[in-house]
Amino acid sequence: MPASRDDLMEFFDSLGIKVTTVDHEPVFTVAESGDLHELIEGGHTKNLFLKDKKGRLFLVVALHDATIDLKKIHQLIGGQGRVSFGNADLLMEVLGVTPGSVTPFTLINDREAHRVTPVFDAAMMRHDILNFHPLSNDATTTISRDDLLAFARGCGHEPQVLAVSEEAQSAGL
């Protein structure tokens, strides 16, 4: 059974991580979340659940307006051949959420199998405060950059911080 929002909040507490959460109408795309950017301080994000030719899974997390070249990203993240989006069934099986609710917080559902490699864009990681869905797209949870890393490590993952967006690459990050 995938973790619930309450389970996630308890896990944050167990790690000593302080977060704030704002409830709102469900948003399914980055475009739909535009109004929230003015209401909630910090970097707003998008999350890509990707699979390479050998079946390796990646969760790429970047700023909401980042430009990511899906034809080349495999070279940056260590994928075998080009990547494609993981389908909804695989997403639910591995990370316990439906499309539109993908977030790095889904790593809570991959604590045992470690099937997913988290990749955090270097440009995003320049923000002190970041925003993600708390396992469902009807709320936004704000967390510090350092606590995001502590959360991922608490789930047994060592996230790769890489310049995967064109913005990060052009800034030399």
Rank of each mutant, 00 (worst) to 15 (best):
P2H: 12
R5N: 08
R5M: 06
R5K: 12
D6R: 12
L8Y: 09
M9W: 09
M9T: 03
M9R: 14
E10I: 01
F11L: 07
F12H: 11
D13E: 15
G16L: 14
I17Q: 07
V19Y: 09
V19I: 12
T20H: 11
T20P: 04
T20S: 15
T21M: 14
T21C: 13
V22P: 00
D23N: 07
P26A: 14
P26Y: 12
V27P: 09
T29L: 02
V30H: 03
V30Q: 05
E32R: 06
S33K: 08
H37F: 08
E38C: 02
I40G: 02
E41Y: 12
G42D: 13
G42T: 10
G43C: 15
H44V: 06
H44T: 10
T45S: 14
K46T: 01
N47P: 02
N47V: 00
L48F: 03
L50S: 02
K51M: 08
D52V: 00
K54Y: 00
K54G: 01
R56P: 01
L57S: 00
F58V: 04
V61Y: 14
V61I: 15
A66F: 07
A66E: 15
A66M: 12
T67V: 03
I68F: 00
D69A: 04
I73S: 02
H74I: 01
Q75R: 14
L76P: 01
I77E: 11
I77L: 11
I77K: 10
G78N: 10
G79S: 04
Q80R: 11
Q80K: 14
G81M: 05
R82G: 10
V83R: 04
N87V: 01
A88C: 02
D89R: 11
D89A: 11
V97L: 02
T98L: 07
G100V: 00
G100L: 02
G100F: 00
S101H: 03
V102Q: 01
V102R: 00
T103L: 05
P104I: 10
F105V: 06
F105S: 10
L107G: 11
I108P: 10
A113L: 14
H114E: 12
R115L: 15
V116D: 12
T117D: 08
T117C: 05
V119Y: 13
D121G: 08
A123M: 13
M125N: 10
R126N: 13
H133P: 10
H133G: 09
P134D: 12
L135P: 05
L135D: 10
N137M: 06
D138R: 10
T140K: 05
T140Y: 04
S144W: 04
R145D: 07
R145C: 04
L149S: 00
F151I: 06
F151M: 09
G154V: 09
G156P: 09
H157M: 11
P159F: 08
P159I: 07
A163G: 10
A163W: 12
V164I: 12
S165Y: 06
E166L: 09
E167G: 08
Q169F: 01
A171N: 14
A171W: 15
G172Q: 15
L173V: 08
